[in-house]
């Protein structure tokens, strides 16, 4: 697995780079000193590195890996190149929960600042239950076209509710935008830890579905005929991807494009085999979101862009470039 080592090294290198750069550039030896103990050239660097940069870049990396992994798995499962972790509608449900919490001032006793995040998570799981119940009610097999249809309808319904909320939100509009466009500003170690637990808990089952997703991507009926436990695989992927997306949205808001575009770019480079595609997408997603977050906080510094704007801009341009180059070089 030389590839895995290379990707890990790449992720680490980008991680260090993103911790170095920002509104103030912090030299490498000061970062080492802050982490491992030692003299720093300015005392403020230690606080920036330890309490601002590292948790934020950690969150970006883990979230990027989660989003891209979910996107790759959902595209394979639904045989749909437009699918990603949000296709089921869970992330819009989560955004609605966060917005409700902001507008109504709902919060958890003892965890006042975590109100929107907790509501987002609650709503994402609620949405997942509703969507799966609807799909189950339509037919007992979770037919992929039904899932996509229900996801689209559910997303529309939730967007409408969100628009109504925004109409009445007044000066709270900015905070709601934060959830709908995503931001990783002010993230803590606790949040990074929650994301990491989510990735291990729900990402591992996804990573283990490589062969099954290959069979799905070739054809669901074909998957059944070669012996794939079709319904179990569907339920595993839908639940794990949606749960992971729910956690991501509740922490960083809904960051568009990563789950959609990263698997496509990876596929262009290393082929559609999910046993490679899933892990490589996770690595590439981590690198991509760390860099996108770096751009979000540096390009217009001291102003900060919503990260969803950056991912969409970079993602679209990168994808079009790679796509056209690869088309010129032959079909992939």
């Amino acid at each position: 697995m030389g590839g895995a080592a290379l990707w890990t090294a790449g992720v680490l290198a980008v991680f260090v780079l993103c911790v170095c750069l920002g509104s103030v550039t912090i030299p490498l030896r000061d970062i080492a000193a802050s982490v491992f103990g030692g003299e720093v050239s300015r005392e403020s660097y230690r606080a920036i590195v330890t309490w601002t940069r590292i948790p934020r870049v950690l969150c970006a990396g883990i979230m990027g890996a989660s989003l891209a992994l979910c996107g790759a798995a959902m595209q394979g499962l639904l045989r749909n190149p437009l699918a990603d972790g949000s296709t089921l509608g869970v992330s819009s449900g989560a955004a609605l929960g966060a917005a409700l919490s902001i507008v109504l001032g709902v919060s958890l006793p003892g965890l006042e600042s975590a109100g929107p995040a907790a509501m987002a998570m609650l709503f994402s799981f609620g949405s997942l239950v509703i969507i799966l119940a609807l799909a189950w009610g339509m037919d007992r097999n979770f037919a992929t076209h039904n899932i996509i249809l229900i996801g689209v309808v559910f997303t529309m319904l939730v967007s409408a509710l969100l628009s109504i909320l925004i109409t009445f939100s007044g000066e709270k509009l900015r905070s709601i935008t934060y959830w709908t466009m995503g931001s990783l500003s002010g993230k803590s170690y606790e949040q990074a830890a929650l994301l990491a637990v989510g990735l291990v808990l729900f990402g591992t089952p996804l990573l283990l579905q490589g062969r099954e997703l290959n069979a799905f991507a070739v054809g669901e009926e074909n998957a059944l005929h070669v012996g794939v436990p079709v319904r179990r695989v569907k339920l595993t992927v839908l639940v794990c991807a949606s749960a992971l997306i729910g956690i991501c949205v509740s922490i960083g808001g809904s960051v568009a494009f990563v789950g959609l575009i990263i698997p496509h770019i990876v596929r262009l480079v290393s082929g559609p085999n999910h046993r490679r595609l899933l892990p490589v997408s996770a690595f590439a997603g981590a690198i991509f979101l760390m860099l996108a977050d770096l751009a979000a906080r540096t390009v217009l510094s001291p102003l900060e862009l919503p990260i969803g704007v950056v991912t969409s801009l970079i993602g679209a341009v990168t994808f079009i470039t790679i796509f056209y180059r690869s088309r010129k070089g032959g079909v992939r």
């Binding site: 190149p81 991507a217 054809g219």
Partner: peptide, 14 residues
């Protein structure tokens, strides 16, 4: 073993 009528992959497998 079943050879059915409807298949064809979406992504470019070998």
């Amino acid at each position: 073993g079943v050879l059915s009528q409807n298949h064809g992959p979406v992504f470019g497998f070998t």
